[in-house]
Design a binder for these strands. Sequence first.
DNA 1: TTGACAAATGACAGCGCTAACATTTGTATG
DNA 2: CATACAAATGTTAGCGCTGTCATTTGTCAA
Lengths: 347, 347
Amino acid sequence: MKSDRSAGKVTLADVGRVANVSAITVSRALRKPEMVSPKLRQRIEEIVEQLGYVPDPVARALASDRTDVIGVLIPSVTNSVFADVLRGIYAGVEGSPFSVQFGNTRYSVLEEERLLRVFLSQRPAGLIVSGIDQSETSRALLMQARCPVVQIMEMGPAPVDMMVGFSHFDAAYDATRHLIAGGYQRIAFLGARMDPRTQRRLEGYTQAVKEAGLFDEGLIITTPRASTVGLGCQLLSDLMARTQKIDAIFCNNDDLALGVLFECQRRRIAVPDEIGLCGFNDLEMMAVANPPITSVRTFRQEMGRRAVEMVLARIAGKDVPQPVVDLRYELMPRLSTRGQERLRRGA
Amino acid sequence: MKSDRSAGKVTLADVGRVANVSAITVSRALRKPEMVSPKLRQRIEEIVEQLGYVPDPVARALASDRTDVIGVLIPSVTNSVFADVLRGIYAGVEGSPFSVQFGNTRYSVLEEERLLRVFLSQRPAGLIVSGIDQSETSRALLMQARCPVVQIMEMGPAPVDMMVGFSHFDAAYDATRHLIAGGYQRIAFLGARMDPRTQRRLEGYTQAVKEAGLFDEGLIITTPRASTVGLGCQLLSDLMARTQKIDAIFCNNDDLALGVLFECQRRRIAVPDEIGLCGFNDLEMMAVANPPITSVRTFRQEMGRRAVEMVLARIAGKDVPQPVVDLRYELMPRLSTRGQERLRRGA
DNA sequence: TTGACAAATGACAGCGCTAACATTTGTATG
DNA sequence: CATACAAATGTTAGCGCTGTCATTTGTCAA
């Protein structure tokens, strides 16, 4: 007795009946066309069209023990950095039969672990996870995963499988060196959220200022709060309340840098003449701010796209020649860090 | 012969075997606990824990003809407006057994239709779609959908099912009225992307300036390009090249407004004394910009949260007393639109 | 104690599809 | 024309779960 729940639903068997072939042949005509004779294949395609048959991915998943879903775990949906990564991921699956399922870990290692279990129970075709700081359990789960895995955002010594990212330490180190080379001596660091990547940027900054003999713990201000433009304003105020002797600020991201710029404008502190300013990520607005703000460009969309490419290549059984890709970064020097230079020139 | 593909996978039957009950009883203990005696239920829960049983959503979906997935169709992942909506949606499903599947329509009605078919073939528990401008076919698909449907972002006369949004026309109308009330006479409109919601904001602006006898087509600049801060700079330049007689600018969103502010700073045009500036959406940065920028606050997270709440209520069989929710908006007057006022006071 | 009825549990079938193996058909070769 | 072998198609048996109906167990009134 056929229940009515699937009212109107056309199945492979229905198509087969009309075409006078078995369901499996229809399945093959659609999934592995080269296994079916061209003539029959065409006839089946017509009938599929005519009956409006739509394959049922759920049944397919159960029978074949796999899905066409690539799972993506990211810590935040609002952060524009991850929004860019997502865009790259979308661009990557575009045109392929694969779809994307996101999970928001909210910067929690435990939530990541939970989501990982959920995702793995759904037989993903591939997994893309953020960062390299998974819990031991998560790492184990990923190692056991019977699908390609890509870690994105960072570089690290022991990839679970594949990896696309860049060194936040190096990026921050270079940015700080740029400030030092520009003649700045009292370089503050403003950090929000303090997730692992921010931490490593702080380490890069620290190493650079220490090497130059410019380290001063009093110049570092961090907060676990999520970074916003308003927070940038406030952190600058905190910093000014603590010490006036600052000649540059390295912000752990562009939101903070923008807030610092606004607050400087309000306090009539000239950027870059009195204070140099450097952000991180090079959001679109940095180049058009007034003054344009120096930042470290990171290749966020590219990261997403590459990660998907690697997953797809592996699914297709291709060999991935470079399973660990360092996308690097690019320092974008702009007016906001030319203060000392201008002073010297007497500008 | 059991194939090895499900190596290590624990099934309901496995749990049942250990508990000396049938698989269906285990299923009930987990899904409908009130149907199983408390004692047995607890024993089963222990064994589930011990064996590490994880329910298989795919098998469940096939057997029960339904999933715990709420499908969400939005036009963009990078636009921070939608990122906020997503955050609200996430907050809404938090703690429920439901998960979210996104589809990115990229502002294309055809892509929306395609994704809708894909989603519907997966038996969603609910659907959330953006806007009210679906194609005829999409509308028909949505009407036939055997799950709750919520349209978000806008208000419209004929909801497919449920609806949460606000009137973009009214919001823009009120913002423009605010500028007019502030004494501005030559009010320009800057619009990017020109999706249906932007169009309606333009209509609201147009109606307000027409009513006040201040309409001038030459003051309207639009572009199909996606809005960015840099685009705001450029549109201001275009506007200034066309006419110098402007005393206020209503930007169709905050990115543009920020760009306009930067460009004004560069051109030494005082905001608000020479030009009043109003944005749309009230992104966090507007309040802390220099000067703070007047904007229209929209309740984006709230919109996502409410949409999910409505879907969940309907799934739970509850009656949704208010299937159409107008979330309104709030004008946030700030310094950037107090130019005429200051002039009069001689500031 | 018995019967009536509710509560608790089970047996069975099937969701729509595909893996694995089986069979038929076509084609070239000696 | 028989043989060998590849190409094309079919049969069978599930995947892991839940809907439906059947059965067993427990509870209480008469």
